[in-house]
Design a protein around this nucleic acid. Structure first.
Lengths: 213, 213, 213, 213
DNA sequence: TATGAATGAGTCTTCATTCAT
DNA sequence: CATGAATGAAGACTCATTCAT
C-alpha cells in the first residue's frame, strides 16, 4: 500500500471533503506548480467552496506543507523502520547488493505510486523553508542513522570499501534519485526495462563503493 | 572566462542598465524563485524604473528565458565544441577516465562560477516550456552527438563496456549532476576536498561503465 | 417601464452590489467614455472593492458589453414584438403616419429614460466588435423583418411610395435617430416642444416616403 | 482638391516628418480610435522617433486636435464661403433644391475624400471638449449664419415653408449627415447609386421643408 | 532639429483570505 | 461545519512624456 492518499485518510482522520481537497491540490500543483495553482481552482476541482479549504488549512502554504511533509517522511522513513533494520541484522541479506536491490526496488515502487507528490516535493523544496526543515529532519533523524548502521555492518563484513559513510551516502543517494528522476520525470514514456535498469544501477553503485577484492 | 554575465555583456551588446537588470534578476530569482520575485523588486535592486525592464523584455517571462537560455547553451555546449572533440580524437586523452577528469573539472568550474544561474535553471525548468525547449534542443543537438562519438571511440579502444550509449549516458550524467547539486546547493558550506571528490566520482562512473578486464 | 436598470435588476437577478456597479459604470462611462473611466473609479463610486467588479465581470470589456447589449436589444426589440405587430395588422392604425407617431413616441420615451446608456452605445459602438455584433444581430433579426412586414402592409394600402423597403428604412431610421441625437445629446438644454417636433418629423418622413396622390 | 492632408501641407508649412506623423496618426486613429493608438505606434508608422512627435505637438491630445480642427473647419466652412453665398444671391440657383443638390454633392465628395478624418471627428467629438469647442464655433460663426441667410432668401421666394430656420436646419442637417454615415461608415461596401440616393434625399428634405403649393 | 532610452504614474487583473449567513 | 460573496493588497504591464546626446 504505497498510495499516500490512502495513508493520509487513515492516519489523520480526514473528512471526505478534506480528502478531495488534498487530491485536487496534488493533481493541480504537480501539473502546474504551486504558484500557478489558485486556491479557487483547487476548490473547484475538489467540489467544495473556497472557504472550506481555509477551514481546514489556515493558509495555502499550510496546505502545501500538509501535503508534502508526509511524503518526505514516508519516502525516507519506512525502509529504516524497525522491521527493515532488523532484517538487515538478522542477515536476511547475505550481501550489500541484495540489500540494495530490495531497498531500491521498494523505493522505486513507492515513487511510482506517488509521482505527482514527489514532483511537488522536488519542485517546491527549493522555495519553502518549512519543507526544507521537514526534509532535513527526516534525513538527519532517520536516513542518516539507518544508513550509518547499515554501512558499518557491511563494512565489517568486508563488502564495502573503507570510505567514510558520508562519502558513500553522497555517492549512493544521488545516483538512485538521479535514476528515478530520469525514469519518472524526464523520460517517463520511454520503454523501460526496469528490472534491468535497477540491476545496472546496483552494478554502478557497487563499482563505486564495493570492496575491490 | 566562465562568468555568464561577462559573456552576456559582450555577445549581445547590452546597455549598463540592461546589465543591472539582468544582475538583479539573477540575484533575486535565484534566492527566492521566479514567482516570488516581482518586477518592481528587480527594478528597485537594479536601480532602474520598472518600465525600463519592459522596454528591454516584453514580459517577465521573456526576461527569465533571456537569462536562462545562454546558461543552458553554455553549460552543455563548449565542451562539445570542435576544439574539445578534436582533442579526444587526437588521443590527447589516453584513457576515458582522463577525459572524464578534464570534462568534470571543466563543468565543475563552470558551475562554481554560475551557481545562482544554475539554481534558476533547475528550479524553473519544470514550469516553463520555453526553457524546456532550449534544454531539449541543446541536449539533442550538442550533448547527445558529442557523447555518442566519444563513447564509441573509447568503446573501440576497449575501455568501456559494450553497453548502449544511451544507457551509459543515463548512468554518467545524473551522477555528475547529482554530485554538483550536493556540492553547490544542498551542502555548499561543508568543507569539501573537491579534487578528491571528483576522483571518487570518476571511480564510481568507471565502476559502472568501464570494461571489467 | 422604460428604465433599463430596473429591467436588469429583474431579469437577471442581480445582487445590490452588482446593481451599484452597473449604475456607477453607466454614469461614469457615459460622462467620460469607456477609456477614460477606470475600474477603480467605478468601484469607488459603486462603493465596492475593485475586486468585486471582477468577481462579476471577467474583464472591464465584459462589463461594458453587459451594460450595452440589453440596451441595444431593448431599444430595437419591443416595438417589433408580437403585440405591436399585431396592432398594426389588426389595423389599429388607419394610416402609416399614425403608426409612425406611436412608434416614434414610444422610442422617444425609451431614449429619454436611458440617455446615458444610449450615449454609451453610440460612443463605443465604433470600437468594440462585440457591441457591433449585438447591434447587427438585432437589426437583422428584429428591426429589419418587422419593418419589412409593416412597410409592405402600408404599401399595399397605397400609403407609401413604391420604393424598395431598404431605401425607405435608410431614409426613415437615420432621420429619427438624427432627431433624437439632436434632442438629447447635442442640444438637451434647449426648450423643446417635443410634441410639435415629432409631428414635424413625421411630416418630413411622409414627405420622403409617403405616396404623392 | 478635397484631401485635407494636401491642405495641411500647404496652409501650415509642415516638414515632411510632420506630414508623416499626421498621416500615420490619421490612419491609426481612424482604424482603432484615439485611445487604442499609442504615440509609439504612430511614431513607428510615421518612421520617426517617439520624441519627434512631442517636438511638434506638446501632447498627444494636441496632435488629435491639430488633426481634427481643420476637418471641422473645412467640412463646414467652404460652402459658406463668400464665393458660394454669392452664387446663391446672384441666383445661380433658381430653386432651393438645386442649391441643395450642389451643396450635398459638394459635401458628399469632401466626405468621400476624408473618410478616416471624419470618422475620427465623429468618434472623438464626444470626449474632447477642445474639439467640441471648435465644432461649436464653426457652427455658430459659419454654418448658422450662412444657413440663415440662405433659408431666408428662399423663404422669401416662397420655396420654403414658413418654419423657423432653426427647425429647418434641425431637419435638414441630420438627414444629410445620417445619409453619409450610412453611406460611408455603416454600409460602405454596398453597391450604391449615389446620384439616385442624393436625389431621393433631396425629395425627402423638400417634403419636409418645401412649401406645399 | 531629431533621437530613443528612461521614466513612473496609472491600468486592469488576480487571488489568498475573511466573515456573515 | 460549509458556503461563496466580498475584499484589497499586490502584480505585471502600458504609455505619454522628458531629456541628455
Amino acid at each position: 500500500m504505497n498510495d499516500m492518499l490512502e495513508l493520509l485518510r487513515n492516519e489523520k482522520n480526514m473528512t471526505p471533503k478534506q480528502i478531495e481537497i488534498i487530491r485536487a491540490a496534488i493533481e493541480l500543483i504537480s501539473e502546474k506548480g504551486y504558484y500557478n495553482t489558485s486556491t479557487s481552482e483547487i476548490a473547484k476541482r475538489a467540489g467544495v467552496a473556497e472557504g472550506t479549504i481555509f477551514r481546514h488549512y489556515k493558509t495555502k502554504k499550510e496546505l502545501l506543507v500538509e501535503i508534502v511533509t508526509p511524503v518526505i517522511t514516508n519516502f525516507a522513513a519506512p525502509m529504516f523502520a524497525e522491521k527493515f533494520v532488523d532484517q538487515v541484522f538478522r542477515t536476511d541479506f547475505a550481501h550489500f547488493k541484495d540489500l540494495m536491490y530490495v531497498f531500491i526496488k521498494n523505493r522505486f515502487e513507492f515513487a511510482q505510486s506517488n509521482i505527482p507528490l514527489l514532483k511537488i516535493v522536488m519542485q517546491e523544496l527549493a522555495f519553502h523553508p518549512e519543507i526544507q526543515d521537514a526534509y532535513k529532519k527526516v534525513f538527519k533523524e532517520k536516513v542518516y542513522p539507518a544508513f550509518n548502521q547499515t554501512l558499518d555492518f557491511y563494512k565489517e563484513k568486508g563488502e564495502l570499501q573503507n570510505l567514510p559513510n558520508e562519502t558513500m551516502i553522497r555517492l549512493i543517494v544521488p545516483t538512485i534519485i538521479g535514476f528515478m528522476i530520469t525514469r519518472f520525470i524526464l523520460q517517463p514514456d520511454k520503454d523501460w526495462d526496469d528490472e534491468a535498469e535497477i540491476r545496472k544501477l546496483i552494478t554502478v553503485i557497487m563499482g563505486g563503493v564495493g570492496s575491490k577484492e
